[in-house]
Computed example of a mutant assay.
Amino acid sequence: MSALANVPLSAPGHAPLVVSGPVLVATDGMAVSPDALFNAGRLAAASFGGAVELVGVCEPMPGVAAGMDVLPVPAELDEARRAAMFDDLRRSVNVAAAGDPAWPITVLLGSPPRTLAREAERRGASVVVMGIGRHNPLDRLFGTETTLATLRESRVPVLAVGPNFPAAPSHVVVGLDFSVASVQAAQLALRLLSPDGRLTLVHVRPRFEHPSADWQVWDADYSRTLPPLFEQLAQQLDVPAGITVDTVTVRGDPAPALLAFAQQSNADLVAVGTQRHSFFERLVVGSVATRVLRTARVAVLAVPGRG
């Protein structure tokens, strides 16, 4: 019997994910296209009921080696850099068409990924909005690698967007393995959709095949398990009128197969769940989520599972 048949979607762990805290938009104020970040922040705030807050993190300068000693950097220098970033953020939010001068701004000192994750959890944030900076950098600091590192640290969903992120996605693809995290990713993605949008739930089956009778039985069992699981999830999503939900099963390696489907179907956003069960998992958190975020050409919503 497929392990999927034992996944109880009605269990408490699959209850709707409640998010209503502030939306933290992470930037250093020097974004090439700040409107994409700010539009994503506005969308998340409207979808989840929170308020937009801008957060920058200025990494302290390391000490300077002098022989056997390390000369510490004067505190005034780090403070000056923090103040300069604050001014950049203020200027950015004042100039950008999608910005709002009333948004509060905070600039902290520390390691950007760890500090952002800690600050998001402390504030009870609903989501952290960041840039994907691989092809067309949204900012100098908060690019893809920083976003990935933040995701590894964060217990809060991360929405990573590129410069072409729409005001509201019309088509969202969700990578679904029926785990708590992937179900909650579907729940949050649904709230980001435009009123007449389309949500596609994609399950990637293993490509491996074997001629043995045991494999054939397992594979047939797997196939029979999927439709009722899809149906049960669709019923739990509480889909608003006007939104279309469809389900797709593909074979292959999860991340490439999911991204290939998203590209072929012109999706605006790919949503995935992430899992953390051990220190090792924390280091390589959600290999699928990591590979999706690193190679996606569309926005990515990564949701850490919450029981």
Results as ranks from 00 to 15, higher is better:
Val156Ser: 06
Met68Pro: 08
Pro12Asn: 02
Val129Leu: 01
Leu109Trp: 11
Val245His: 00
Pro157Ala: 04
Asn136Thr: 15
Leu188Asp: 03
Leu176Ser: 01
Arg297Asn: 10
Leu43Ile: 04
Glu209Cys: 04
His210Met: 11
Arg291Thr: 12
Gly29Asn: 06
Pro256Asn: 04
Leu269Phe: 04
Val285Ala: 14
Ala120Phe: 08
Gly56Asp: 05
Arg251Ala: 13
Arg224Met: 10
Gly13Thr: 05
Ala186Met: 13
Thr249Leu: 02
Gln263Gly: 13
Phe261Glu: 08
Asp87Thr: 05
Gly41Phe: 02
Leu116Glu: 09
Ala257Trp: 13
Ala44His: 05
Ser170Leu: 05
Pro206Ala: 07
Leu201His: 09
Val300Arg: 00
Pro227Arg: 05
Ser47Phe: 01
Ser154His: 00
Arg134Asn: 06
Thr290Glu: 14
Phe280Tyr: 14
Arg122Trp: 10
Phe208Met: 09
Ala44Cys: 03
Arg90Thr: 06
Arg123Glu: 05
Asp78Gly: 14
Asn164Ser: 05
Met85Ala: 09
Leu237Ala: 12
Met61His: 15
Gly307Met: 12
Arg251Ile: 10
Glu145His: 15
Thr290Cys: 02
Val19Leu: 08
Thr244Leu: 02
Ser92Met: 13
Leu176Ile: 12
Gly307Pro: 07
Pro163Thr: 00
Arg306Asp: 04
Ala289Ile: 08
Ala260Arg: 11
Trp215Ser: 04
Pro74Glu: 15
Gly124Tyr: 13
Leu37Pro: 04
Gly133Arg: 02
Ala102Trp: 03
Ser179Val: 13
Asn94Gln: 10
Gly41Met: 00
Gly124Ala: 02
Gly242Met: 02
Ala189Leu: 03
Gln264Glu: 15
Val298Cys: 03
Glu79His: 13
Ala186Arg: 12
Ser212Asp: 10
Asp221Gly: 06
Ser194His: 07
Arg205Trp: 04
Ala84Cys: 11
Glu119Thr: 14
Ser182Glu: 07
Leu237His: 07
Met68Asn: 11
Val32Trp: 13
Gly21Lys: 03
Gly197Tyr: 08
Val156Pro: 02
Glu119Arg: 12
Leu259Thr: 12
Leu229Thr: 14
Asp238Cys: 00
Ser20Gly: 15
Leu301Cys: 07
Val270Ala: 08
Ser20Cys: 14
Ala160Gly: 10
Arg282Ile: 05
Glu79Thr: 12
Ser33Leu: 08
Asp35Ser: 08
Ala3Cys: 01
Thr147Asp: 02
Val300Thr: 08
Ala234Met: 12
His210Ser: 07
Arg90Leu: 09
Thr249Asp: 00
Pro74Ser: 13
Ala11Ser: 06
Arg140Cys: 03
Thr225Cys: 15
Ala296Phe: 15
Ala213Arg: 06
Leu301Ser: 12
Arg140Tyr: 00
Ala186Ile: 15
Ala125Pro: 04
Arg118Gly: 09
Val70Ile: 15
Ala257Ile: 09
Val202Tyr: 07
Asp139Asn: 05
Thr27Ser: 15
Pro101Cys: 09
Phe280Glu: 02
Val18Met: 11
Asp253Arg: 05
Val57Ser: 03
Gly110Thr: 07
Gln275Gly: 02
Arg118His: 06
Glu79Arg: 12
Leu192Ala: 01
Val23His: 01
Val70Met: 14
